[in-house]
Design a protein around this nucleic acid. Structure first.
Lengths: 204, 204
DNA sequence: GCCTACACGTGAATC
DNA sequence: TGATTCACGTGTAGG
C-alpha cells in the first residue's frame, strides 16, 4: 500500500525535469488521499475488507446506521421529555394555581393551636391545597402522638382548612407554642418538598 | 469527473489484446470507487469541496459529529430514564406497600352510604391510603354538590377510613345506591390513575 | 495460469 | 502560466 518507487536518474533526465513537479505533486495527492482513507477506516468499527472500495462502503453503511440511531434516540428523548413534562407540570401548575387563588381571595396560611383542657387541643390549619397534604398531615399527627377526633376538613379557593380536636396519647403535656411550632415547621417542609412528613414527626 | 477516453485502435492492436482484460477491469474498479465516493458524498450534509480528498475529509468530520451526538443523546436518555424511575417508582412502591398492609390486616375496601333523613347522608369509605386520595375525595364531594360536616378521617395499616355526614346543597334528593355507585366508580378511577376525580364528578 | 487490487507516471483540464 | 485535480493505461504483487 505505502510502496514508493524512486525515480531512476540513470536515463536522460533533461526531459523528466519539467515533469518531476507534476510527479511529486501527484505523489503527494495520492498519499494524502490514502491517509484520509486510512483515518476514515479507523473511525468505522466493523471491518469487512481492507479494500479501498469496501472501506468507503463500510463508511457509507456506518454513516447510515449512525444517522438512524441518532434519529431514533432524539425521538425517544423528545417523547420522554414530553411525557415527563406531562407528569411534572400539572403538579407545579396545581401549586401555582392554588397560590394564586389563595392570594386572590385574601386567604393566608395559618396554624392555630388552643388548649381545651389537660392535653386536649383544638388545632386549626390553613394551607395551600396540594396533593397528599392531608395524608401527610394525618401521618404526622399519628407520629406526633395525637389522637384525632371531631376532625373537619374543607377545601376552597386553593386552600385547605383543617380543624381537629386532638389529645396526646402518651400523657405528656405539651406546650401550645411547641405544637404550633412543630406544625408550622411541618407545613413549611411540605411546601418545599413532597417528602413525607414522617421523618420530621419522628424526631419527637 | 465522469470523463472516459476510448482506446485508440489506430495503433498495432495485437499487443493490446491481452492487456484489454486488465484495462477493462481497472476501468470497472475505478468507476465503482467513484460511485462509492459519490454516494458517500450524498450522505454528508455539509459540502466544502468536490475534491476526492475533501469528500473523505468531510465524511470523517461528519462521522465524528454523529458519534459524539449519538453518545450525548444516549447519555441524556439514560439520565432521564434514571430520574423518571426515581420519581415514578416510590409512588408504585407506596401503593404496593399499602395493598400488602391492607391484605395482611384483613382490611377490605368498602363504600357505604346510609340515608339519615331527607337528603342528609352518612358516608363511610375505606380505601388504600394513597397520596392525594383525600384531596381528590373532597374535590369530588364538592363537585357532587355535597356539603360536608362531622368529617372524620383516619389512616392505619395502609388503609384510609373516611366517614362524613353530608347533605346535598341543591336540594335534589339522590338515591343511596346511586351515591354508592358514584363513589365506588370514583374510587376505582383513583386506583387506576392519579387523575383528578373532578371530571367524573362533573358528569353529574 | 487467472483474477483482484493497488501504485505509479503521465496528459489533459480547470482554476 | 503555474498549481491542482483528475482519469487513464500499465506493471506487478499476492491470493
Amino acid at each position: 500500500m505505502g510502496r514508493r518507487k524512486l525515480e531512476d536518474d540513470d536515463d536522460n533526465n533533461n526531459s523528466k525535469e519539467f515533469k518531476s513537479k507534476n510527479l511529486q505533486a501527484e505523489r503527494r495527492r495520492r498519499q494524502k488521499l490514502s491517509d484520509r482513507l486510512l483515518t476514515l477506516r479507523s473511525l468505522v468499527p466493523i471491518i469487512t475488507n481492507m479494500n479501498k472500495a469496501t472501506i468507503i462502503d463500510d463508511a457509507i453503511t456506518y454513516i447510515q446506521e449512525l444517522q438512524k440511531t441518532s434519529q431514533v434516540l432524539s425521538e425517544q428523548l423528545l417523547e420522554m421529555e414530553g411525557s415527563s413534562e406531562e407528569s411534572v407540570m400539572p403538579m407545579k401548575l396545581e401549586i401555582a394555581v392554588a397560590q394564586h387563588d389563595m392570594k386572590k381571595c385574601g386567604i393566608k396560611e395559618e396554624v392555630k393551636v388552643s388548649n381545651i383542657d389537660g392535653n386536649k387541643f383544638l388545632i386549626k390549619i390553613i394551607v395551600e391545597k396540594k396533593r397528599g397534604c392531608f395524608t401527610q398531615l394525618i401521618e404526622a399527627m399519628n407520629y406526633l402522638g395525637f389522637e384525632l377526633s371531631e376532625t373537619n376538613v374543607t377545601t376552597f379557593s386553593g386552600a385547605m382548612l383543617f380543624s381537629s380536636c386532638v389529645h396526646g396519647k402518651y400523657g405528656d403535656t405539651l406546650m401550645v407554642e411547641h405544637i404550633e411550632e412543630l406544625l408550622s415547621e411541618m407545613m413549611r417542609s411540605m411546601k418545599t418538598s413532597s417528602q413525607s412528613a414522617i421523618e420530621l414527626g419522628n424526631t419527637n
